[in-house]
Design a protein around this nucleic acid. Structure first.
Lengths: 347, 347
DNA sequence: CCGCTGGGGGACAACGTTGTCATAGTGGGC
DNA sequence: GCCCACTATGACAACGTTGTCCCCCAGCGG
């Protein structure tokens, strides 16, 4: 294997205009249309001509300009846009992976961006993607205002919302069963004798956080242990706010003996706060996470599948691209409680 | 907040041709060029005219077509391409996040794709991105053949390789100090009295795996404990291969008393295999991972920063885009040993 | 009244491709 | 020898923008 020396591909010589079909045509001594035919594997080109063209393409390092192609053809740009909260979060990177996978099978590229829970950032990203004429849009909504998407949807860009519903637009949506999950968590803990079950959730203006709170409440009522305001702490949370919340919960007249954590981040904060503490409350976390089974005690979670979420949303999007124009659908994916130990501690 | 009813943005009416500047111009009673001026905030348009144009834009839901714009201007498409192994891997999603972050500051979008360690897939992705005329390319190489990029680089697309060097092209590269890291791991273990230290690494044709093996060997020599073939098991690994390897290592005449794990995946496999085992060997893992500090014992690792890697590579790329045409650089980022417990067990 | 200036606006070509249609040449059947 | 069918190829317009250049007209100084 020879290493190509700097004389070749070095950063030195910049802006060497890219070869176009025109250049190829000139070099091969044919018309530009013939080059187009060769590049697109269209029939009706004599093998020997095709060979000349291919040689010219190779010599010039020609690569078809997709912008021009898409412009001319007016059809698909072969891209789909993905707006999520944070690619760095393992949950969303799982979603991203699934989206990418399916997009690939359908010959599409994925453009993605993180909104960081900022509605204006989400909007900026989504509209930017629309300017790029993505074939469709997958959005984890950061706010409640999505009417800015109406012109785009009307213009034929299908949009699917993931993980949370849109605020003020009717569109396809894929959610997980947040309420059912927290109901199950509370029920499970109550079945192990807990009557003082706390809930630590994310900021209540986030749809999933609010739903999970509702599920928690519902679970408490169903279990006959009642809903007590003082056992609930909604975010935004960071490590230290979780720590102080836990202290408060344990120093009450009737301390909490169990906790439901509203998402994977909060679960981790709790685990950190409890590290080394002897008397640990029972714990069930929403969202599964890697290594949960290797902690001691292993962490019981309400699990749902990031890739299933991504897949369901992308499938829905492609169905729209394939011409499905039935009324918007709302898909709710099931969750399941995975008992591992931390939630099976008796009160 | 009113919910827009199906009469509006429903999937029903499809392919309503998108408004162009022409449509806007007609509606506003101006020429298309004036619309262009308004859209691009160019001076020389009377305020009242601009207002009419903006109203028309709003009414038609016009959004400028970036493909056409980029084609006409011939300059930047405002995108950079990122090819990595797997966005689903927390390490790479950290990289992705950092890349996105910086790209955003520079007004660029990121298109990404996972190669799954398949060279042809990597090539396919990279060339696809080139067809889209990305402004630059960030690649975690999957193989050793990258001469296919030469025409692209020659045509002015800067390329930066991340995490691993390219096989046969001279280009900017950002690596982590793989050798130094494993040397340090072995030295650390030897300092705790271990003389039978095993190494479980990824497939040896992966650059990082090979480098880490070299570091391991070097560390063994420096520590005066010698390099013993039978203590090394290179991958590809999965959970069961790790399990059998561990059994082999422990049933030797002189069993291994310590292990160096070649990457985060292997570390996790080892942890799973050791779960519940009483007599555990000391362990140092390459790559840090979330919750490593909460396991028992907490896992000692060679840590390096995914976001630092992404940032360094992206900075390098933008420097090239800003016209830097100095010779290709190779940046090696430091790693550091984070002692947490699993590596401080005495032999 | 003339010429000049400058602000506001438009006509037109071009970016790189592809769809449509036309044409030159070739060979075969009568 | 004539017409037809067919293959191989090319000319040209068009996609939606933007850069260049040009024009019109109001206002102003002389």
């Amino acid at each position: 294997m020879t290493t190509l020396s700097p004389s070749g591909p070095v950063a030195g010589q910049r802006k060497v205009r890219r070869a176009t079909m025109n250049d190829v045509a000139r070099l091969a001594g044919v018309s530009i249309k013939t080059v187009s035919r060769v590049v697109n594997d269209e029939p009706g080109v004599h093998p020997s001509t095709a060979e000349r063209v291919l040689a010219a393409i190779d010599q010039l390092g020609f690569r078809r300009n997709l912008s021009a192609r898409n412009l001319r053809r007016g059809s698909s740009t072969g891209t789909i846009g993905l707006v999520l909260e944070d690619v760095g979060n393992p949950f969303y990177s799982g979603v991203t992976r699934a989206v990418e996978e399916i997009a690939r099978l359908r010959g599409r590229q994925v453009i993605s961006g993180s909104s960081d829970e900022d509605p204006s950032r989400e909007r900026e990203l989504a509209l930017e993607f629309c300017s790029r004429r993505v074939d469709g849009l997958l959005i984890v909504p950061a706010g409640l205002q999505h009417s800015y998407l109406v012109p785009e949807m009307r213009a034929g860009t299908p949009v699917v919302f993931l993980d949370r519903p849109a605020g003020d637009v009717v569109a396809d949506t894929v959610l997980v069963d947040n309420i059912g999950g927290t109901v199950e968590a509370v029920t499970h803990l109550a079945a192990h004798g807990h009557r003082r079950i706390a809930f630590l959730g994310d900021a209540p203006d986030i749809f999933t956080a609010n739903e999970r709170l509702r599920g928690y409440r519902e679970g408490c009522v169903r279990a006959g242990i009642g809903y007590h305001e003082e056992l609930v702490a909604m975010g935004p949370h960071d490590e230290s706010s979780v720590r102080t919340t836990l202290q408060r919960l344990q120093s009450m007249r009737e301390p909490a003996t169990a906790i439901v954590a509203g998402n994977n981040r909060i679960t981790v904060y709790i685990l950190r706060a409890l590290a080394g503490v002897a008397e640990r409350p029972a714990l069930v976390g929403f969202d599964d996470f890697e290594l949960a089974d290797l902690l001691s005690p292993p962490v019981t979670v309400i699990a749902h599948d990031a890739s299933a979420l991504g897949k369901a949303a992308t499938d829905l999007l492609f169905a729209r691209l394939d011409g499905d124009n039935s009324p918007p659908r709302r898909v709710v994916l099931p969750v399941r409680l995975v008992p591992r130990g931390s939630g099976e501690v008796h009160a």
